[in-house]
Amino acid sequence: MTAAPLTISVVIPVLDDERALARCLERFAAQSVAPLEVVVVDNGSADGSADVARAAGARVVEEPVRGIPAAAAAGYDAAVGDVIARCDADSVVPPDWVERIRDAFAADPALEGLTGPGRFIDLPRPWRGVASVAYAVGTFGASGAAIANVPLWGSNMALRRTAWAAVSAEVERLDASVHDDLDLTMRLGPRARLRFEPRLQVGAEGRMFHSRDAARRRVAMAMRTFRRNWAIDGSAGRRWLHRVSGRGLLVGEAQR
């Protein structure tokens, strides 16, 4: 008997993003494999983001607590698909994005999370490639070393719903100064089966590169996220020890 195909829920947190959201939802309407649902989490928008979502057939979830951690978690909680895919309103997903995600999880039943790179489409053309590579090195290289796993990137990621259920009570939801995707990755732990797929690429806005203050703010958020999780589970060294040997069991994993 052939197993039923995996179902994919797409979660998009929004705050006053109606124009970008309209473009994003058009791309989901043109996917080679349609998602089971698109869940748009309205984080208190003053514009027509919710109306745009409903007009496109998306399910709207209201999250009054401001901040991406609260909005993203509300979307994951509401999702009903086997796999939860996540992007932002400004993510420019290719037409086979959902199909690639579905096939990756179907091919590897142990896979818990999947992520890929971005190309920054709003920067001056000579700088787009440099900025995209620099961001990838910082996100997947430096952050990966600090957390002892592949960091999930919120603009382009997917998570098996059972993996979310295992850590949903542990992730930070209230502190908007925490990177929600990085915090989620650290709660999943260094031995979670997470994969970086270079062919799973999306376009995105390079907000970090718009100003020095924006860059400093993102770095400060990353350090805040690291410290929160290191205080719970121990240092980066302990995480690597747990990853390679199974010793130094993390507190969060001991509770699950």
Rank of each mutant, 00 (worst) to 15 (best):
I84G: 07
R247I: 08
I68R: 04
M1I: 06
G203H: 08
L25I: 05
A106D: 13
R86A: 15
E253A: 15
W127N: 09
A145K: 10
A176V: 10
V137N: 00
D17S: 06
H210S: 11
A79S: 08
V61K: 00
G248M: 10
A71G: 09
A145V: 14
T225D: 07
P190S: 10
T2L: 13
V178N: 07
R86F: 11
A70M: 08
R187W: 05
A104N: 10
A231S: 15
S245D: 12
Q31K: 02
S32T: 11
W97K: 02
L6T: 00
A56M: 14
A58W: 00
W240P: 04
R216S: 11
A176H: 09
L25H: 04
F209R: 03
T162F: 12
A72I: 00
I147H: 08
P94Q: 13
V14N: 01
R59N: 11
R187M: 00
L111I: 08
A231Y: 06
L6V: 01
A148V: 04
D183L: 10
D88S: 15
L114Y: 06
V83Q: 06
L21K: 01
R161T: 01
G203W: 08
L249W: 02
A30I: 01
W127Q: 14
E99F: 04
N229P: 14
P126S: 10
R100W: 05
V33Q: 09
R119E: 03
T2Q: 10
E63A: 08
D108A: 12
A74Q: 05
R66C: 03
T225E: 07
P13H: 14
V150C: 12
S211F: 09
A106T: 12
V61A: 11
A145H: 12
A145G: 13
R23C: 01
S45R: 08
N156C: 10
R218F: 05
V41M: 00
T162N: 13
V65R: 02
L182T: 05
W153H: 01
R195N: 07
L15M: 11
D17F: 00
A53F: 00
E63R: 08
A145Q: 10
V41R: 01
D96G: 14
G206E: 09
N156I: 01
R207N: 12
V33T: 04
G118P: 01
A89G: 14
S32Q: 13
A192C: 11
G154L: 03
R27N: 07
D181R: 03
A148S: 15
A104H: 12
V98L: 14
A70P: 03
D51C: 15
V14A: 09
R239Y: 04
G44L: 11
V52N: 01
L6D: 01
L111K: 07
A55T: 06
S155F: 07
A34F: 10
A142M: 11
A254W: 02
I84T: 07
E205V: 00
A107P: 15
R173D: 13
R193P: 02
R216W: 05
R199E: 07
L249D: 04
L249R: 04
L6S: 05
I121Q: 00
G44I: 10
R238Q: 09
